[in-house]
Amino acid sequence: MRIALITDAWKPQINGVVTTLEQVTTLLRQQGHELLIVHPGQFRTFPLPRYPEIRLAIAPARRLKQQLTDFAPDAIHIATEGTLGFAARRFCLRRRWRFTTSYHTQYAQYGRQYFRIPTRWSYAVLRRFHNAATRMLVPTPSVQRELRSRGFTNAVVWTRGVDTERFRPAAEKNLYHRPRPIFLFCGRVAREKNIEAFLHADLPGTKVVIGDGPAMASLRPRHPHVVFTGFQTGDDLARHMAAGDVFVFPSRTDTFGVVMLEAMACGLPVAAYPVTGPIDVVRPGVTGVLHEDIAIAAMQALLLDPRDCRAQALECSWDRCAAMFLDNLVPRAA
């Protein structure tokens, strides 16, 4: 099959969306499918406000039209709601081509948090964008239910996976040489990740933050006893993750959180709030603890069996994720 993927999120960005798309496209190519990946690196770009590492394509419509016309895809998937996503949606509607979309990010919450945009305005734009698709792929049943309640009509679940060969328990947890237990956070160091809830939690041992972002400059001097490792990728990320004891996921706005599966694959139980994302990923009392007090969740998670965490991660393969993606694509022509 000839598949066109249009995405505003792509390398060198480091996030769960890029991880998912990279893993899925690699597997689809290995299976013999032909892929056209349209991403911002092929265009002139500008930085997204508050997210300077995310760059959006400037006026991509003409080149995008040429790429899609020349490739003549059998199926089109629009992964994001950026400038490329909107241009691709408009092109498909004009051609009367069917397409699918996916919902990865809670833009309505971020718009309210950063720019005071009423959520109903943001949801109106997102609803119009996604309801034009034949199917909108969402990461969890709870996101599916939430979006249906807001008038989205075509949501189907497309779950995520984890590389359990790369992310696996460490033979010895001696990377940090700090007092144990080691409580880990991994992700973008930014306001929307609610990282300060983790940093202010009353916990013994050591807190480690893996990642970087706009809040790093202000947080590092205020928390001198926290280990800030900066961005880590690939095997280095897996090595840092496996050296911890509990993974703390303080976000209240993520739609999934692939990083939780990566932590479980390393044998780390997850401490999180009982909100969208964790409620679909964590098995309470088995692979993590969900509680409105993140410190209580973290301390109770210490008591869980790392083998159960690893076992859940082994159920979540990227092969299954790629198969679900493929099954939900629709032919370009009805």
Score class of each variant (00 low, 15 high):
residue 132 A to T: 13
residue 17 V to M: 10
residue 271 A to W: 02
residue 198 F to P: 06
residue 176 Y to S: 03
residue 119 T to S: 14
residue 238 A to M: 00
residue 210 I to Q: 07
residue 143 V to M: 06
residue 294 I to K: 04
residue 33 H to R: 05
residue 321 C to H: 12
residue 64 L to P: 06
residue 189 V to I: 14
residue 227 V to L: 12
residue 211 G to T: 11
residue 192 E to F: 10
residue 72 A to S: 15
residue 105 T to H: 13
residue 241 M to E: 01
residue 165 E to K: 12
residue 64 L to F: 02
residue 195 I to T: 10
residue 246 V to H: 03
residue 167 F to A: 04
residue 191 R to M: 11
residue 140 T to W: 02
residue 292 E to S: 12
residue 125 V to I: 12
residue 312 Q to K: 01
residue 75 A to I: 08
residue 73 P to N: 09
residue 53 E to D: 12
residue 233 T to V: 11
residue 111 G to P: 11
residue 56 L to R: 05
residue 46 F to V: 12
residue 155 A to E: 15
residue 270 V to R: 04
residue 205 G to L: 11
residue 184 L to K: 00
residue 109 Q to H: 13
residue 12 P to A: 06
residue 230 G to Y: 02
residue 73 P to E: 12
residue 312 Q to R: 05
residue 222 R to I: 08
residue 297 A to F: 06
residue 161 G to E: 05
residue 25 T to A: 14
residue 310 R to L: 00
residue 143 V to D: 08
residue 315 E to P: 04
residue 125 V to K: 05
residue 134 T to C: 14
residue 31 Q to G: 13
residue 270 V to M: 00
residue 326 L to C: 03
residue 258 V to P: 03
residue 123 Y to K: 04
residue 77 H to N: 12
residue 65 K to F: 07
residue 292 E to Q: 13
residue 110 Y to A: 14
residue 55 R to M: 00
residue 9 A to T: 15
residue 263 A to D: 00
residue 154 N to A: 10
residue 248 V to W: 05
residue 34 E to S: 15
residue 237 L to Q: 08
residue 34 E to A: 14
residue 307 R to S: 10
residue 269 P to L: 01
residue 239 R to A: 09
residue 166 R to N: 13
residue 295 A to T: 04
residue 270 V to T: 04
residue 210 I to N: 06
residue 157 V to I: 14
residue 35 L to G: 10
residue 124 A to S: 15
residue 86 F to W: 03
residue 289 V to H: 01
residue 73 P to F: 11
residue 313 A to G: 00
residue 74 D to E: 13
residue 190 A to K: 11
residue 21 L to Q: 13
residue 281 V to W: 00
residue 16 G to S: 03
residue 320 R to D: 13
residue 166 R to Q: 14
residue 21 L to W: 11
residue 57 A to F: 02
